[in-house]
């Protein structure tokens, strides 16, 4: 019978076969030890984490004080989710104009109160999307370039994500705090909640109250203007401070343009709004850089310009000519003449 025969025909085991098996075991053990050693060295202190935590934001050794063009080059990149923040006050116009000169594209522009600067960025086609809560020319009327892009797709279609001020302010704060979302009492009876899918709700675990939620605002880059920086790149802003501190702390990279660079930030309230240099990527000295917005203590809001903008932005031709003359053919030094009150 064939099977019986087969057992007899099995050749004698060579002594090296057993040795191989023993070596294999040894080898495996050795490799395991080696791997343990390597992983211990490579991932020292790392623990498995069941919850999501915020990405680590590396402190910048010292904010680099750079010319505006270099600062914008480094901080604001194509495709960024970027906030040029400023709540009427301290709007970083010069930095926005530099981004236009450098032909930044595919930006997601974030701002509570997009005004003329975003009208300009949208009008030149730098933006794919705008996230906002009030988009107008305050006290004057519409943002015509924004409307043309959104309603007619010129010079390119613009996507929007719309919120209320309370939602945006809370979202920035959650972004700065490293939380995944913001919770607040809002949007009750308001239709935005039914057209913006990112607005959701949560039930309070203590009281059972339904509260609105929005995702935390997490930015690639934040650009703000401030009154002064010292030589280390610590920045101080005062007056209507808006959501600038939150925007900077919610961003991976931050650029601050300033009215002046001083040896020492000087006499200030113990609770002054100061951004330490290690929260900022780059500081650029651009006096007048907030015009036609203003810098408290330096120059006033140019309300006449906000009114003059209406006819300029109304037509594509007048807008394009204005951009050519006032942005493309000029540099940041053109803002200096506004620095005098």
């Amino acid at each position: 019978m064939q099977p019986m025969l087969a057992s007899f025909e099995q050749p004698a085991r060579h002594w090296t076969q057993g040795l191989d098996r023993r070596f294999a075991l040894l080898w495996a053990l050795l490799w395991a030890l080696l791997w343990a050693l390597i992983s211990r060295l490579a991932f020292a202190g790392r623990c498995d984490n069941t919850g999501a935590t915020r990405e680590r934001i590396q402190p910048v050794p010292m904010a680099k004080i750079l010319p505006l063009a270099d600062a914008v080059e480094e901080v604001v990149r194509d495709g960024d989710k970027v906030a040029f923040e400023g709540f009427t006050h301290l709007i970083p116009y010069a930095a926005g104009h530099e981004a236009i000169r450098q032909q930044r594209k595919d930006l997601t522009l974030v701002r509570m109160t997009p005004d003329l600067l975003y009208d300009q960025l949208i009008g030149v086609g730098a933006a794919l999307k705008m996230i906002f809560s009030w988009g107008g020319n305050p006290g004057v009327g519409s943002l015509h370039r924004f409307r043309d892009a959104y309603e007619q797709g010129w010079p390119r279609p613009l996507e929007i994500e719309e919120h209320s001020h309370a939602a945006m302010a809370n979202a920035y704060e959650a972004g700065a705090a490293g939380l995944p979302f913001a919770v607040f009492r809002g949007y009750r009876g308001a239709e935005l909640a039914s057209v913006n899918p990112s607005i959701k709700s949560v039930t309070c675990p203590y009281t059972g109250e339904q509260l609105a939620t929005v995702p935390a605002m997490k930015l690639d880059s934040a650009v703000v203007h401030a009154q002064r920086a010292d030589r280390e790149g610590n920045v101080m802003l005062e007056g209507i401070v808006g959501v600038q501190k939150e925007a900077v702390l919610a961003a991976k990279r931050a650029l601050v343009t300033v009215e002046e660079i001083v040896d020492d930030l000087g006499l200030r309230s113990y609770n002054a709004c100061v951004l330490p240099h290690w929260t900022i990527t780059a500081v650029a000295y651009v006096p007048g850089g907030a015009h036609p917005s203003y810098a408290q203590g330096h120059y006033k809001r140019d309300n006449a310009f906000y009114e003059a903008w209406d006819p300029i932005a109304r037509e594509r031709d007048t807008f394009t000519a204005w951009v050519k003359e006032n942005i493309l053919e000029k540099g940041p030094e053109a803002f200096a003449r506004f620095a005098r009150t």
Partner: peptide, 27 residues
């Protein structure tokens, strides 16, 4: 002309951040 003119800040008792305004004072 706007809700954030310098005149408003200069003549105010105090000026707070926008998140504080919406969270503490309004909400």
């Amino acid at each position: 002309l706007s809700i954030g003119d310098g005149e408003l800040c200069e003549t105010a008792l105090t000026t707070v951040s926008v998140p504080e305004m919406f969270r503490y004072w309004l909400q």
